[in-house]
Simulated assay, not measured.
Amino acid sequence: MTRLHHALSAGKEINKALTDLDGAIAKAIDAAKASGLPQGLIVAELHGHAHAQTHNMVKA
């Protein structure tokens, strides 16, 4: 995962939350791969969530 948060000036709490999120996503991806999910399906799922979150931010 790209770690852009190192370039941002954010507090320790935000950095920890981002690190925890990054770790959780990486673990979930590893678990999905281990269970045999095709890489394209994993990418599609992540892309769908990113799109939905972007939509929620734009409409707010």
Rank of each mutant, 00 (worst) to 15 (best):
L18F: 10
I42E: 07
R3P: 00
D22V: 11
I42A: 06
L4H: 10
A52W: 05
M57W: 08
G11K: 01
K27I: 08
S9D: 14
A7K: 13
A10L: 15
I25H: 00
T2N: 12
A17G: 04
A34E: 11
I42C: 07
T19K: 12
A28C: 05
D20S: 06
D22N: 12
A32G: 04
L4K: 11
G23C: 03
I29H: 05
E13L: 08
D20G: 01
H47I: 04
V43T: 14
K12Q: 09
L21C: 06
A7T: 08
K33M: 08
A26G: 03
D30F: 05
L37G: 00
E13V: 11
G40C: 01
E13N: 08
A60W: 01
G11T: 06
H47D: 07
T19S: 14
A31S: 13
I25N: 00
L18T: 03
G48Y: 02
P38G: 05
H51D: 07
A44R: 09
L37Q: 14
A34I: 02
N15H: 11
S35T: 11
H51E: 10
H51R: 13
L21R: 12
G11P: 01
L41N: 14
A24E: 13
G23Y: 01
L8E: 05
H49K: 06
E13A: 15
